[in-house]
Design a protein around this nucleic acid. Structure first.
Lengths: 341, 341
DNA sequence: TTGAAAGCGATACCAG
DNA sequence: CTGGTATCGCTTTCAA
């Protein structure tokens, strides 16, 4: 069953119809060189009449580009990644570029993603969200001359947008300290996570620094790693909440994890915020509905600006290599003064 | 500032390196015709050695196809759409097709989307999620010979996957009736919504039918339209909850709207489920965490199967035109017997 | 200002 | 089984 090719009209049909050469049609199409007014009018009429649309594929082959931007997202399951993606979609929609979505859920798929996309004929540029490519992959991208921008992840050789995770971790922890909490636990991602080497470590550092500044001793039993999943965080929180000296506050490295903590508290009959304060990170869409106190980072904006940055690199403009987006503490209903304060 | 073209190797380089003709290289590339074992080995070695990757653009021009599937999603803001998208991503990842993401947030963008994507050189096929193209658009797709599959939306001329929304509305409403509720309100989308003409209307019909079957009189003040947004639903619910005779149960046409209802109830100090039962629709990821009773529809599966269906159409196989996916009531913590029952 | 023709990098027909 | 070559539809020199 051969797909019958659509009887689409080509540039030469237009040329014939207008009684000019194809080159001229191409010229009026791209508005490049000067074409005599009467000629241009004739050509434009022909284009309209024939409902001609130039073939992007052919144009791209000729131009050596694809007009596609690849957006690599690990875990489309993560709400924050989705919001970032949406920002990117928005920026790209206003450009001539199509957006090829590449979801990467496993380490293996991640490698293949770069292998597949990391050459110049699938995409003209790459936007990588919440993920840090390995040096080898960066080198490959460089060899293929594919511009790449990182959103929520840093690499010295690549333009990127990040937040100050150390400051964020400190912000959250200090908030709890100011509420009188002393027994403050932390739930982060697995530090060995190949996808996000930096961010959790930095938030941990901020947490530790805030504690240190306040003269509060670190308890290693209070620092736990899970994954981004709610379920994992719930279980980890359960362990924390069953500790002989259970924490009065938990800072989770993401809102999703904080939601897991909330679940665990509910299951244990521990009242939030009276008996337990919880702070998240990100301020995802449902955070307000869970009443979650959290460190807000501009998720949507990061995606949008990341895409814009990539677009300007693609356009040949020089751009700053690194942008740090602001962080902000949003107080809601899951934090309160420590019990007995 | 001209982008320096990457010194990429072409098929003829490989041919030269292997001491064969380009046609032969093309053959081993596509595994089509028979190539002598030693020759193929030589070519494969050359490919490996030169790190050769065929240009997709060139191949596409030659083949007259793009190896791209366009996925059109209205409101990437909607959690259920995201889950569907993920299903599609999953299915497409296992195929040679790239996925071009087209988000459509406004009626205007929607028209442009079909205009842009509705010709054969941007995508080989279209997967349209939670949206129904107009007849004119369908015709355009047909003329351009672009196969199109609808997920969560029906059109007589297009293969599609749907759920039985009438049955779903009935399922939810009957559940409430069985719990002894008589004053049951309904919050749906705007019926005039150009994006989803069918689904809300059908759920309303199911709601009405269940009421009718149980001999409960319809109150028009109990039937409200909002939009998909939480915020709108919250406000609509507020109106409902301030009615002189306020409902003891609310059925919302989506989980997001149900979440808005929950918010409104909390704000009014109305306890759920003691004083108010709430049922949603979809069973999105956070539904379990909100303890939301809901009508589950297989969101992820719908995306996956939709993509698979499209893939098989693209592969030239005939497929059933319409698939109805099953619905299931999931009881959680937001429904209970009516007060005083 | 305009047109003829040479690419862009693959595929596939047609000989050999 | 293999190689030469026309072809896909557009852009862009190079001359006229």
């Amino acid at each position: 069953m051969e797909p019958i090719p659509a009887p689409s009209i080509r540039i030469r049909d237009v040329a014939a119809h207008a009684g000019v050469g194809v080159a001229t049609v191409s010229r009026v199409l791209n508005g490049r060189a000067h074409v005599a007014e009467p000629t241009r009018l004739r050509v434009e009429a022909a284009i309209k009449e024939l409902e001609y649309r130039p073939s992007t594929v052919a144009r791209n082959l000729s131009l050596g580009r694809t007009l596609v931007v690849g957006v690599v997202v690990p875990f489309l399951t993560s709400p924050s990644a989705v919001v970032r993606l949406r920002g990117a979609v928005e920026a790209l929609a206003a450009s001539p570029y199509d957006l090829a979505l590449i979801d990467v859920e496993t380490e293996d798929r991640r490698r293949r993603a770069f292998d597949v996309i990391g050459r110049p004929d699938r995409a003209d540029g790459l936007l990588v969200i919440s993920m840090i490519p390995e040096d080898e992959e960066v080198a490959q991208l460089g060899r293929a001359r594919i511009p790449c921008v990182l959103v929520d992840g840093a690499h010295s050789a690549l333009p990127h947008l990040v937040v100050d995770d150390v400051a964020g971790g400190e912000l959250a922890t200090r908030h709890l300290i100011e509420l009188g909490h002393r027994r403050i636990a932390f739930i982060g991602d697995k530090p060995s996570d190949p996808f996000r080497p930096g961010s959790t470590r930095d938030r941990t550092a901020g947490y530790e620094r805030a504690l240190h500044t306040a003269g509060i001793e670190l308890r290693h039993s209070y620092i736990r790693a899970g994954t981004q999943s709610i379920e994992q965080a719930r279980q980890t929180a359960l362990v924390l909440l069953r500790l002989p000296q259970r924490p009065t506050a938990i800072f989770a490295a993401s809102d999703l994890q904080a939601l897991g903590v909330l679940e665990a508290a509910a299951a244990e009959g521990i009242r939030v915020p009276e008996e337990l304060s919880v702070v998240g990170f990100d301020d995802i869409e449902i955070a307000p509905f869970a009443g979650l106190t959290t460190v807000r980072q501009p998720l949507h904006e990061s995606g949008r600006r990341g895409a814009e940055l990539l677009l300007s690199v693609l356009g040949g403009e020089l751009e700053p290599m690194s942008v740090t987006l602001p962080l902000e503490l949003v107080e809601r209903r899951t934090t309160a003064p420590a019990p007995g304060v």
